[in-house]
Design a protein around this nucleic acid. Structure first.
Lengths: 266, 266
DNA sequence: GTAAGAAGCC
DNA sequence: GGCTTCTTAC
């Protein structure tokens, strides 16, 4: 047992992994004695990259002898995590010898935990990390309440399956479709912070945005970075020192060619 | 009209028969002037026997001249019972001359009842009663809150379609499947009562257990009796003097031969 | 009235 | 398996 981590608030664990698993089905969990638990993975269509860090400072217990990479099916993992009751605390352990990942849950005062295991899976090493994305230069950055983006998404899906996001003097969300269109503008005063240096615009799929917004169970603000023709970067702070970062590729004019949506040219 | 019975709380009637009909499709209702309304029937695959008694003490009105056996399709019967509103009281009557069973429902204060009838059907006399099952000698018996079994079932169905139940020092539920496994143990303190004299274990189909658990609409505790290689007996008290008893046959190693699961060798 | 969970449909 | 609807808890 090279690794043990405990989180007392199972609701946070549920919120984090339900959000992530709505986009990612399989992933490595990276256990790092110095950092905590992290993962980086892309959705199958390579349109969205998700990077999660649960910092060791946010773990109520954390023991790790060495770095570990544990590959799991997130969907199955979430089915288990969902079984936690609100008052349960959750413990993760590895049983690498048996290629199993262990999840235990129990109320803090209970003696005996319900114990689940999930088989580790074999997946290819991720071919690309987020490093190249971290080099991206965004012209515009803003932080604001997640509920605004949630509203814009719900407004937009009346008309279309995509949302246009424009950062210029202010931040605007818009869409148009057969039955009509909508515009939702946030004034500077409604933004917690904003630094817009060059107009940028992009169109993004609502399905991804809706899945990303599931993070609102565990976060209240979004820090959004944009530049035309680049993926949009959205950072969500969770717990005290942890975060989930999404890079979502814009839709291109040439929607027939799915490859153009990909975050990477293979 | 040789028989009339009234139950003021239609929700109880719904709960009882929705639970039973999830396993039994056709049955005799036995009307006994001394006892009340009862039924004994097995599911079509002969894996589960259900015995229901609604004691006459629990009926708000009960008139029966003589013993009656009324064969009905429970599925159709439940469709009718489901039509009752929560504030309705329900009256059952026979119209044996017309081979019809009558269900009336109305709010207590209403003058006029909604009236349904359902045709009696022809089914073979049940070839075997529960008498032989009542002779079974169980080594272990325990009573505990239904919610624990409910949790164990929901935990287990992530992995498999079966649940292993072991009574030894304590009571444990477990399962395993391709994606992983789970264990759920109940300490003696979590059991309302327990009398374990000899370790027993058995594997039971989750589909049956889930249908049996529908009884939780009308009961809160389960009294469970076990012995290895015997059916598991589960007794649920309902109302004041009534009860539903299930005998569920364990799955056998040789799962290809369905007959081995049968409660009876024909 | 809203939101989460369960059941039914595709 | 996802989506939708219905039910139930807060």
């Amino acid at each position: 047992m090279a690794f043990t981590a405990k989180i007392k608030d199972s609701k946070v664990v549920k919120g984090i992994f339900e959000a992530v698993s709505s986009i990612i089905t399989e992933t490595f969990l990276d256990i790092d004695p110095d950092k905590g638990i992290s993962m980086v993975a892309m959705d199958l269509s390579h349109i969205c990259l998700v990077s999660l860090l649960i910092a060791k400072e946010d773990l109520d217990e954390f023991k790790a002898d060495k770095k570990l990479k544990i590959a799991i099916n997130l969907e199955d993992f979430v089915k288990i995590v969902k079984r936690a009751n609100p008052q349960d605390e959750i413990v993760f352990k590895d049983d690498s010898a048996a290629k199993r990942f262990i999840i235990e849950m129990k109320p803090e005062t209970a003696k005996k935990a319900r114990r689940f295991t999930i088989s580790m899976i074999d997946i290819d090493e991720e071919r690309i990390g987020p490093e190249s994305l971290e080099q991206l230069e965004f012209y515009n950055q803003t932080t604001f309440k997640l509920k605004f983006l949630d509203e814009a998404i719900k407004d937009a899906e009346i008309f279309s399956d995509a949302l246009e996001i424009v950062a210029d003097k202010n931040l605007s969300f818009s869409t148009n479709g057969n039955i009509g269109d909508m515009t939702y503008e946030l004034e500077k005063e409604e933004l917690i912070s904003s630094d817009f240096t060059q107009k940028s615009e992009g169109i993004f799929g609502l399905e991804f945005l809706k899945n990303i917004l599931k993070v609102s169970a565990v976060s209240t603000n979004v820090e959004m970075s944009m530049a035309s023709d680049l993926p949009i970067k959205m950072v969500f702070d969770i717990l005290n020192s942890s975060r989930i970062v999404y890079y979502l590729a814009p839709r291109t004019e040439d929607e027939d060619n799915d490859e153009d949506d990909s975050l990477y040219e293979d």
